[in-house]
């Protein structure tokens, strides 16, 4: 019987970047929760604020980023109030992050074995031998032979490096693993393999995943719930199957209409015209209205609120007011 308890609760989070041009809104009032053992998908275009959320959860934001409001609760603790000491045991052990293009950020001068060792030893009391065993075990679980512990990053393919990074993120068996675009830039077969490996690890170890990507097709079926982000806000959120079956928000509809398929009817796709807004001066009212085919007068002046339209199906759109 799966434990349905909540492990992460983000409430009204607000983050902005104080750039030279002025304040740039990145996250503007985002709220969602993640349950034990759940895969929660966060989808949105580049610049919508999803990576900022990941970094905020781990408290790795740097100036000019400023958290201007909201709270992040991890298992009854307030993450935004944690001291450096508390964060040292929070990061990697309770929540870990596979950030975007992590596979290209491995230290080129150190073997991947030593890099995983580093993580284990920095955050636990294990001795070197135990830590090395653990590292080898983790690599094996992501499909890398233990003898590759002695390989340098450049000796591994992109897929292998990404697996090494995932092994690193899971080596301390965190409660929540945040993965930001973990399969971007990988070939489709490698992508499929890695997703299956992650799924297998998830069911055997039992961690939750916050899966962040611009590619909605990866989330459908892989995640239990999906939140669609646009210009710093969540515009729709529900169970994956529900979202695909009955999307409400025009942005979601546009996203779903951006995927050519290999089977089924061959038809012209529209996608979503235009580009995401400049977040130093976002549009008034609903931020999506300049690109929305169904925009009404109201949408230009009044920002819609995220409402529960159906059980567990939230939408922020005036069409449903």
């Amino acid at each position: 019987m799966k434990n349905e308890s909540q492990i992460l609760a983000i409430r009204d989070l607000r983050v902005r970047y104080n750039s030279e041009r002025g304040p740039v809104t990145a996250v503007d009032g985002v709220s969602f929760s993640i349950m034990q053992g759940e895969v929660f998908g966060l989808a949105g275009e580049s610049g919508c604020g999803k990576s900022t959320i990941a970094q905020t959860i781990l408290r790795v934001l740097r100036p000019p980023a400023v958290i201007t409001g909201g709270s992040i609760e991890f298992r009854d603790r307030q993450v935004l109030e944690m001291t450096d000491e508390e964060l040292a045991s929070f990061r990697w052990r309770e929540v870990s992050l596979v950030f975007q293009s992590a596979m290209n950020s491995l230290n080129p001068l150190i073997t991947i074995g030593d890099q995983i060792l580093d993580v284990i030893q920095a955050h636990t009391d294990r001795n070197k031998r135990d830590a090395r065993e653990r590292a080898a075990e983790m690599l094996k679980r992501v499909g890398i032979e233990p003898d590759r512990l002695r390989s340098y990053p450049h000796e591994l393919s992109g897929g292998m490096r990404q697996r090494a990074v995932i092994a690193m993120a899971l080596s301390l068996e965190p409660t929540l693993a945040i993965m930001d675009e973990p399969t971007t830039a990988l070939d489709v077969l490698v992508q499929r393999q890695i997703l299956e490996e992650i799924e297998e690890l998830r069911t055997s170890i039992g961690f939750s995943i916050l899966f962040i990507t611009h590619d909605l097709s990866l989330l459908v079926g892989f995640s239990q719930r999906i939140a669609i982000m646009y210009a710093g806000q969540i515009v729709e959120m529900s169970y994956s199957s529900e979202l695909v079956r009955e999307p409400f928000h025009p942005y979601t509809l546009g996203l779903l209409d951006s995927f050519p398929s290999v089977n089924g009817e061959r038809r012209k796709l529209i996608g979503i015209p235009g580009t995401p807004p400049d977040m130093s001066a976002p549009p008034g009212g609903c931020r999506f209205h300049p690109r929305c085919a169904k925009a009404m007068e109201r949408c230009r002046f009044v920002a819609p609120q995220l409402r529960e339209l159906k059980p567990d199906h939230w939408v922020a759109c005036h069409l449903y007011d």
């Binding site: 070939d187 077969l189 299956e196 909605l216 990866l218 459908v220 079926g221 994956s240």
Partner: peptide, 25 residues
């Protein structure tokens, strides 16, 4: 056939592939 089975599809979701996709480039 292998390539086709690995393509993510919004309508099809994530089915565990029974095909052996093991192996590197």
């Amino acid at each position: 056939k292998l390539l086709l089975s690995a393509v993510p599809d919004v309508n099809r979701g994530f089915e565990r592939t029974s095909r052996h996709t093991d192996g590197e480039v």
